[in-house]
Design a protein around this nucleic acid. Structure first.
Lengths: 190, 190, 190, 190
DNA sequence: GTGTAATCGAGACGGTACGTCCAGTCTTACA
DNA sequence: TGTAAGACTGGACGTACCGTCTCGATTACAC
């Protein structure tokens, strides 16, 4: 019974080293300064190996995110805890992350990647529109059911607004004033 | 009494031609394809003139926005009309713009610029955090006063969420479902 | 047993085209007008290929000479003919060459290159101090042995003076008077 | 009755400062690195002032030589001393100068200027073909008259060879062996 | 074992854009 | 009018990457 695979197989070690090198360089110097040649050199890998497997710089970065190589473990709402508490935790934790220079730079890099490259946009949207939006949505639904949140809450729209609010902080230059977390929750309360 | 100004003054004509050329090229081919050399050539200007006055490509783009060279005339809430109507108009018009490929590409370019360049971030934030936020805030305030909106509305936070909601659409890959405009307004209603 | 050679080998064709293009441009417009970008364009070669293999414009010119790409085939003393006749031929031919505008411009370019660039100086000296000086020296030695020239002739010094005399003509502005060839030979006669 | 000269007269101070600055920069970094903008800045002079009075970089350098701003005081044969002694002094002193790195660099700069620029060639030839050649010629003539040198010495040709011998040392890369001074004199002896 | 085939590292290739430097000109205010 | 200052268009410089290509070497499967 013949196998369908001929020739030397793809090197998993190289792939891992490429993702690790991308992560390091991205955290060091940001998305714009990241070059494919530098990734290849840092990973000890031929340049063609990168071009063979990824169509663009942005998609390598996106794969780093998907593979959890980049420290982007998003706060996922815990289905056991009350909805309001979940949302408060997500809002607060997100804000804390964006106050850390490393994480801020990283998120900005991802935003730049998504804004300029179609492939990266698709992959990143799969993450944010998938994992994050789903967990937010479920927390909102639980809140509505339990009466913690307004009964007429437009779930989809609110989830979009919450994620957008995070995003807006990335491209803002100044610091935010006031207790945005509680203000946001007030909006959702009955 | 000697004047403090020596030497040939900066050419306003060159500056205008640079901004116009930047606008044209940006709308044609997008932010990533935009090169400083191409701007200089299209403007009939020496390359050094660009480097003399702007620190980066992104900041030229930002100045285009500030100077209203780019067609970004934001919908400013009309202080004569009812607040709710103003907000509805702003939300609807913003969504319509982002449905137009040209405008979408342009906004994405600006987002990429803001995400990757400090100078551009400062300039763009002055616009969005200035003109747009201010008009949204005043509309929200009028709405609270007139009773059209909830009395306990956290103005600042809501303005951030509304702008963020717009921004999130830029980096999303898929289409939005539902009547987001009315859903958003429902959130703010008493 | 692994070979020590890795990567794509240097393209001999590109090297040849670069030297040919340098020759053409040099004969057309002179050394000062010669630019690396123009060579690269004329040779249909990337600019980096030039910088990869040559440290300076002058050393490319020098390599042209070494490779006999430039029409510098020096008059080499024929060991069969009498020494005096050889020297007379070399002196006369050299003078005739420097009377031709093309050859004069070319020699001036080489002199400028040697005067301003260390690499070029080394390479050109290998030519003049090698081929030309060697042939002159052997002619002088034959002349001394056969009695055509003074027995006490300081060979090295005379060779230097003869080459120097040629060189001096390059940087002189006015025309030379008198029969310099015969005068020079008279100096060397017994 | 008004003078025939209108407007502000040429500033002699500026001219002096320009020549001084040219000398300093030339001795520092060589002819190729010398730029008109740098001269103007170092001299505290407007760039236009340079272009108004000199046609090229090389001609400024040439004027430095003519004005003895550059330390090129050539050994002029002393008419009181015996001819042979004069020539020996000139040959030795010239060789000593070319052994000093500063002087060598300076002479090379002048050679490069003469080889690449018509104006500089004319001006420098006026110096070497004027002052130096004249003094050499008169020393040779005295030597012939006094019997110190060969009676049939071709004065012009020998002067050319002596200057050329010096010149050749400029563009040579290696060191010279042997006692070239005495060898040269031997050639001229009866 | 002995092909056959695809991947690997390395690195040169033709190009594009960068940001700097300088050339030579032009336009101010001042002397 | 000459001068210092300094902005202007234009263009070469040398560097950094891009995406492609061409090597020898490696590593699997198929025969």
């Amino acid at each position: 019974m013949p196998s369908g695979v001929r020739g030397r197989p793809r090197s998993e070690g190289s792939r891992q080293r490429i993702l690790a090198a991308t992560r390091d360089l991205l955290l060091e110097s940001g998305y714009d300064q990241l070059s494919i040649a530098a990734i290849a050199d840092a990973a000890g890998v031929g340049r063609q190996t990168l071009y063979r497997w990824w169509p663009s710089k942005a998609s390598i970065v996106a794969e780093c995110v998907i593979e959890n190589v980049l420290p982007l473990r998003t706060v996922v709402a815990d289905p056991e805890r009350p909805a309001l508490e979940c949302l408060r935790a997500w809002l607060g934790e997100s804000r804390r992350r964006l106050a850390m220079p490393d994480q801020l730079a990283l998120f900005r890099a991802l935003t730049a990647a998504a804004a300029s490259d179609e492939t990266a946009r698709l992959r990143l949207d799969a993450l944010f529109g998938g994992a994050i939006r789903h967990s937010l949505r479920s927390a909102l639904e639980r809140g509505v059911e339990s009466g913690e949140l307004r009964a007429d809450l437009p779930i989809e729209t609110v989830a979009d607004l919450l994620i957008g609010g995070m995003l807006y902080r990335l491209v803002r230059a100044d610091e935010e004033a006031g207790d945005a977390v509680e203000d946001t929750l007030k909006l959702l309360a009955p």
